[in-house]
């Protein structure tokens, strides 16, 4: 089977999410990668070095600069004439593009796979991760999005793929990119951080969140996450949200501070290796999944913890 992997990038650097997809694609067959963008030659060279990639297809066109699905999907659909499966990371980019490709190919997409069980059989979470479905596709071609935390990352060195240019990109004239506001952060990116410190509504305000959570995260070299309640209350920006409707993370250590543990939040973090919960309510559901729990007032316990590390 010839697979085509969507490379996530910002026209300068390949994003980590791509590497887990390469691993998943390798379980199906020969791995080809698609770098679609504008002035993205450097990205193609990075991808060519990734272990396991046989060929890198590069589509370099102004219409592809911002990854608009209307311009990208027809290009992918055309490449799928000579590939059997299209795999994209289950990031906002992958989720935006892949179903549009699937419909153009008249196939059902398999979303957010956790494992490859056979050439056409996969597992995926449903009901906010409260059940795992094993599904088999009857379609001639596969379109799949891959949960990044469920697969190991392919090595970024050791490969020597051929780079081939792909033509035929054009502006579909349906949509226009106007602007992007990307939150600047020196911290490890949430979905690839080894340690995450996450805060909930119990923090009470954005100032308290900053005052209590940030020093602990700094001390641990951790990424910072939040529950939906903390995001909705405006303590932190949207993209901090961990959960069914936010980001899915699986770090080595997840520290949940003042988070009760609603099922929608657990859906985003319960595959973390070790979960640590600090909460003053000893009946909070978070303690049912926590490996280490501390029943204490976070406003005294967290600064004390930060001081003693």
């Amino acid at each position: 089977m010839k697979t085509l992997v969507w490379v996530e990038h910002d026209n300068a650097v390949m994003k980590d999410a791509t590497l887990a997809v390469v691993t998943a694609a390798g379980k199906l067959g020969e791995v080809h990668a698609l770098v679609a963008g504008s002035g993205c030659g450097a990205v193609a060279e990075q991808v060519a070095k990734v272990a396991g990639v046989a060929t890198v297809h590069v589509a370099d066109d102004a219409s592809l600069e911002h990854g608009l699905a209307e311009n990208v999907a027809p290009l992918v659909a055309k490449l799928m004439e000579s590939h059997d499966a299209f795999l994209a990371p289950a990031t906002t980019t992958g989720k935006n593009i892949a179903p549009r490709v699937a419909a153009l190919l008249d196939v059902m997409q398999i979303s957010d796979i956790l494992s490859v069980e056979g050439p056409k059989t996969f597992t995926r979470p449903i009901y906010a991760g409260n059940a795992i479905a094993t599904v088999e596709s009857s379609d001639a071609k596969l379109v799949i999005t891959v949960r990044g935390t469920a697969f190991d990352k392919a090595a970024t060195e050791g490969g020597s793929a051929a780079i081939e240019a792909v033509g035929g990109a054009s502006d579909a004239g349906l949509s226009t990119f106007l602007s992007a506001e990307i939150a600047k952060s020196e911290r490890p990116e949430l979905t690839s951080a080894k340690i995450i410190v996450s805060g909930g509504r119990a923090l009470g305000s954005g100032e308290k969140f900053e005052e209590v959570i940030t020093p602990l995260a700094d001390k641990l070299g951790a990424g910072i996450g939040a529950s939906r309640a903390a995001v909705d209350a405006g303590y932190v920006p949207n993209d901090y949200q961990v959960g069914q409707t936010g980001k899915i993370v699986a770090p080595e250590v997840y520290v949940a501070v003042g988070i009760s543990g609603a099922i929608q939040h657990l859906a985003g973090m319960k595959d973390s290796k070790t979960i640590i919960a600090i909460n003053k309510d000893e009946d909070a559901p978070i303690f049912q999944v926590a490996d280490i729990g501390l029943v204490a007032d976070l406003f005294t316990a967290v600064p004390e913890l930060t001081g003693k590390l």
Binding site: T121, N130, A133, V135, K270, G293, L294, E304, K308
Partner: peptide, 29 residues
């Protein structure tokens, strides 16, 4: 187009422990 072969419970996390105070948590970390 997809056949659901089976639906299972997600893996259950093994029961954790509760520590008494911050010092014990620091020790575990």
């Amino acid at each position: 187009r997809l056949t659901t072969l089976k639906v299972t419970e997600p893996p259950v996390r093994s029961a954790g422990i509760k520590v008494a105070d911050v010092d014990a948590l620091v020790g575990k970390l």
